[in-house]
Design a protein around this nucleic acid. Structure first.
Length: 457
DNA sequence: TGAAATGTTGGGGCG
DNA sequence: ACGCCCCAACATTTC
């Protein structure tokens, strides 16, 4: 008997750990450990998505004749205990890269025969490195090396049948509301991918930035928990490229693949530089004199900064657990550059809410925005929330959807509501300063202040 | 995966 | 016809 320890690979198709466990020609016991250390940090929407995903996986396992064992506790205790119960000698799991996961797995590896297989990306995390063996710290060369690796369009098949799981104790999964907007499970992930590949992907290069369109795949939560594998997703994109000859369509597919590479780039950064978890990648950006401004932070968190596109993004996050990538950049930039609040505060808030919240990607994104990271955005790259709104939400539909106070404001004022006369405000059913705030900081002032702040660092 | 400031060019209005 | 000015459009530089 082998144990398949499920962590971030909640799927049966193209699952290297499961396949490896099966290849031994032994029975497989699938187990998920509810680790109090991992569940301690509150992230209700993400945890609901996880638990619902486990329920979906359990159903899928049942269809194959198997089941899912759930245990609660420290994996270093629980895995060996389960192994003793089912008389298993080997444990198979997908390799993980976070500092905690690596410590945990290293510890367990001393107790039991633990086989770590594959990884969170298309390639093992350390496979993409320079000729001298050192990790890349800049995205572009990393992406070149990534693309140069041989890739076989192979997806491991879903097993046809699994041996019945022994009748053992299994902890109940916490009851959670359904994950509105993101139904959990492998089928839904597959359905989304297929739908994306049917059309959306071919205009991704331009539409991905549009806040008012559904121009992205919205697969991030599914990739986060491995309800679909990066290989499945990459194979799909490569198939799509073959279908179309127009340069625009192909460039769009490539642009989407690039986003997959970003994901793995940041995984590689976290793996090789685990300190980024709690400090700046660039040490000289470690101790900036960030503002302590609880009121401003609160306004940002609750989507009441007075900048419509910022507020729309923050409310979309709080309501749905997801935010459009462009909005993530705009809101993050606003916190760091306009308010001069420590990016780590923003990182924490995002982690609390995001269904797709992932340490490597979230941390990498925030460090990028703050200019403390690898491909550091130059300090003077400061988003103008008004211009960003006009460019990427030209009619204001994204703003109206998430900031209902502004529902009746016409296009001409939707990104600058403070410019409306009292008469306008009356006509458009909003009173600035009363049911929608004045901008909490003037853009021009904030821009100059940020330039000063980061220049003199 | 900016934005603002500054510089250049060229068409058109007009005395 | 000519020179001058205005300014939009685009390009370059700067933060």
């Amino acid at each position: 008997m082998n144990i398949w320890w499920i962590r971030r690979d909640l799927r049966l198709t193209d699952n290297p750990a499961l396949s490896a466990a099966l290849a031994e020609d032994a029975g497989v016991t699938p187990v998920y450990i509810l680790d109090p250390l991992l569940l301690a940090k509150p992230a209700p929407k993400r945890q609901a998505f996880l638990f619902n995903g486990l329920r979906a996986l359990e159903q899928d396992l049942k269809k194959l004749g198997s089941g899912l064992i759930v245990r609660e506790g420290d994996p270093q205790t629980e895995i060996p205990r389960l192994a003793a119960e089912v008389n298993a000698g080997k444990v198979f799991a997908e390799a993980d890269i976070s500092p905690y996961a690596r410590r945990r797995d290293e510890g367990l590896g001393k107790i039991i025969e633990l086989h770590l297989v594959g990884g969170l990306g298309v390639y093992p995390v350390d496979a993409v490195c320079q000729a001298n063996g050192k990790p890349y710290t800049v995205f572009t060369p990393y992406s070149r090396a990534w693309r140069a690796l041989p890739y076989a369009d192979l997806s491991l098949p879903k097993p046809k049948w699994l041996a019945p799981t022994p009748n053992l104790n299994s902890a109940p999964l916490p009851e959670t509301a359904s994950s509105a907007g993101f139904p959990a499970g492998e089928q839904e992930a597959q359905r989304r991918l297929n739908q994306f590949l049917e059309g959306t992907i071919f205009s991704y290069a331009t539409d991905r930035d549009r806040l008012d369109l559904e121009g992205t795949s919205a697969l991030s939560p599914y990739l986060r928990f491995g309800m679909i594998s990066p290989r499945q997703v990459l194979s799909g994109a490569r198939r799509a490229i073959k279908e179309r000859l127009e340069s625009q369509a192909r460039a769009s597919c490539e642009a989407w693949i690039n986003e997959l590479i970003w994901r793995e780039f940041y995984q590689s950064i976290l793996f090789h530089f685990p300190f980024v978890r709690s400090s700046a990648f660039r040490p000289n950006y470690q101790n900036l004199a960030w503002r302590h401004a609880p009121d401003d932070f609160r306004a940002w968190q609750t989507g009441r900064t007075g900048y419509p596109v910022v507020d729309a993004g923050m409310r979309q996050l709080a309501e749905t657990g997801w935010m459009h990538n462009r909005a993530r950049m705009i809101t993050a930039s606003f916190l760091v550059k306009h308010l001069l609040i420590n990016w780590q505060e923003g990182e924490k808030w995002f982690m609390h809410h995001l269904v797709d919240g992932d340490l490597a990607a979230n941390n990498g994104g925030w460090q990028w925005v703050a200019g403390t990271g690898t491909d550091a955005a130059p300090y003077f790259r400061i988003f103008n929330p008004t211009l960003q709104g006009k460019k990427f939400d030209p009619d204001g539909m994204y703003v109206r959807r998430w900031v209902p106070e502004l529902a009746h404001v016409p296009q001409s004022y939707i990104h600058t509501p403070w410019q409306m006369t009292a008469e306008h405000q009356k006509n458009f059913k909003v009173e600035i300063g009363k049911n929608y705030p004045h901008p909490i900081v003037d853009h021009e002032f904030a821009r100059l202040r940020a330039l000063d702040f980061f220049r003199s660092k």
